[in-house]
């Protein structure tokens, strides 16, 4: 099972269940979740992968939270209490108010599980994992360039407090930041660093860079980082090696941006709509994961 946990910006009590597509939105246990920046975009991107590959859809743990943390704490507490019997293969932690003590308890609960899931953290779940010194318990982080600088700064508790010299670095200096992050044990086993060049890092070594197609407008679109996190998580769930999952996620996101002819005003749903076309055209040749359905074309 692939389990995704995160908050959504609406009035929603803690809600769990399997996610189903519902037009441009999603349905979870009778509640409609818009596909917008944040956990909604991540879930919808993951669902695009599981739909295409005919896998079990993701299960989700969602709660409404607009910044005061109530929904975030409900999610943490639920996971701490239930993770051992939920026993997911992949656990994705996303938008939650950073809470170091609760993240520590959750990581302990995961350690106590018989079978440890593949652990993915993005957004503030990644921030708190790093701030609490728990980064190395995770398998995949998906930082952008500023978040990479945050991981490299041993003192920063949040990206708003990174050393300004690190904020000044550009994406070409990612290798130095990666090296610093691993030195300080502030990185997951796999990093997918998103930027003009995407870097895929495996236990400190850069194993791939992706720069094509070049679609710089993607950075401005709210949710494009979330979709990358959803894609890499779902490809990992599909059984790809984690670094391969990261490479294909980066390529897929870029190609979807190209297909959608994005501008800085594009909505994330317009990018997500393209994923099935991208997979149909490229996934088999990129990954060897071939769904031999109607119209498969790997050229």
């Amino acid at each position: 099972m692939m389990l995704i946990a995160g908050t959504v910006p609406q009035d929603l009590p803690l809600t769990t269940g399997e996610v189903k597509a519902s037009g441009n939105a999603m349905l979870v246990n009778g509640s409609q979740i818009p596909c917008a920046q944040g956990t909604g975009a991540l879930v919808k991107a993951a669902l695009a992968v599981t739909d295409y590959l005919k896998l079990e859809p993701p299960k989700v743990i969602l709660a409404g939270d607009t910044g005061r943390g109530e929904g975030s704490r409900a999610i943490y507490e639920y996971l701490i209490q239930n993770i051992s019997h939920l026993a997911p293969n992949v656990l994705v932690l996303h938008y939650c108010l950073p809470d170091m003590a609760l993240m520590r308890k959750l990581c302990q609960a995961v350690e106590d599980c018989g079978k440890k899931p593949i652990m993915v953290a993005d957004a503030a779940s990644m921030y708190v994992a790093k701030a609490a010194g728990l980064a190395s318990r995770f398998d995949i982080f998906t930082p952008d360039a500023t978040e990479m600088a945050f991981l490299a700064d041993p003192d920063a508790i949040h990206p708003a407090y990174i050393n300004k010299h690190l904020f000044d670095t550009d994406i070409s200096q990612t290798p130095e930041l990666v090296s610093a992050a691993y030195q300080h044990k502030s990185a997951a086993k796999i990093l997918l660093v998103k930027g003009a060049i995407d870097y895929v890092v495996k236990e400190g070594k850069i194993v791939a860079t992706i720069s094509e197609p070049d679609v710089p407008e993607l950075e401005a679109i709210g949710g494009t980082g979330d979709t990358v996190a959803g894609l890499v998580s779902a490809f990992a769930y599909a059984g790809l090696e984690l670094h391969e999952a990261a490479i294909i996620a980066a390529k897929s996101n870029r190609m979807a941006g190209k297909f959608a002819q994005v501008t800085p005003a594009t909505k994330i749903g317009q990018v997500i709509e393209q994923f099935s076309l991208v997979f149909k055209k490229y996934l088999c040749s990129w990954s060897g994961v071939c769904y031999m359905g109607e119209g498969e074309n790997d050229d």
């Binding site: 920046q37 939270d65 910044g67 929904g71 993005d122 503030a124 990644m126 980082g225």
Partner: peptide
């Protein structure tokens, strides 16, 4: 558009 971030008020602000 707004993008980036990770705290739960960010999708709301978006």
């Amino acid at each position: 558009n707004t993008s980036g971030g990770g705290c739960p008020d960010i999708p709301y602000l978006h």
